[in-house]
Design a protein around this nucleic acid. Structure first.
Length: 185
DNA sequence: CCCTGATTCGC
DNA sequence: GCGAATCAGG
């Protein structure tokens, strides 16, 4: 693999958009590493980005407000139905098996909308991140929740998705609070 | 420990 | 030119 014109172009675009080196590397994929990106950035003389707010934009700048806001709630929510098992893959399917099948009268449930900026690609996924799948696995847009899992390297999901996966009938509010806490930690 | 970008230097 | 290793820092 090498720096094709196409990749360099993508590199310039993403870098100028303010993505970090590791994020750019994950987007480009093809075995391009964070170091490779940084090295290229310097060789191209792009080390000084336009005017990106002082670095440190790990992941979790701030939940972009959705159109339909909800007063008094820190996290935007929307109503949705439990996804059918068809969107579930691999070990995630195993984790969901015990309760993934919604009752015939599946009612809409609240689900926290994970801001795009906080979702992660499979390349960015870490041991300490929530592996809840978001979107169509065959789409380039496919991401994982990415929120921190309670206790760092605990279960496969963040507080909220663990609730969805294992105890869908339990208190949603507590689940949301757990997730907010996890993000801050 | 997580992450960030910068730099070095063998290939 | 490339990028792993390393460094300094948040």
């Amino acid at each position: 693999m090498s720096w094709t014109d196409e990749r360099v172009e993508l590199l310039r675009k993403l870098w100028n958009e303010g993505l970090s080196a590791s994020q750019v590397a994950a987007e480009i994929g093809a075995g391009i590493t964070r170091n490779a990106v940084i090295g290229k950035i310097h060789r191209l003389g792009l080390s000084q980005r336009a005017k990106t707010p002082v670095a440190a934009r790990p992941r979790a700048a701030k939940p972009p407000r959705l159109q339909q806001q909800q007063q008094g709630v820190g996290v935007a929510v929307r109503a949705t139905t439990v996804n059918a098992p068809s969107v579930v893959m691999g070990n995630v399917a195993l984790a969901l098996t015990p309760c993934a099948l919604p009752q015939a009268d599946a009612r809409p449930q609240e689900e926290v909308v994970i801001p795009l900026t906080e979702r992660v690609t499979i390349m960015e996924l870490r041991e300490s991140m929530c592996r809840w799948p978001i979107g169509d696995p065959t789409s380039p847009e496919f991401r994982f929740c990415g929120a921190r899992t309670p206790g760092g390297a605990g279960g496969p999901y963040c507080g909220f998705h663990a609730q969805v996966a294992y105890q869908p009938a339990q208190d949603r509010r507590r689940a949301r609070d757990d997730m907010k806490t996890a993000r801050i930690a």
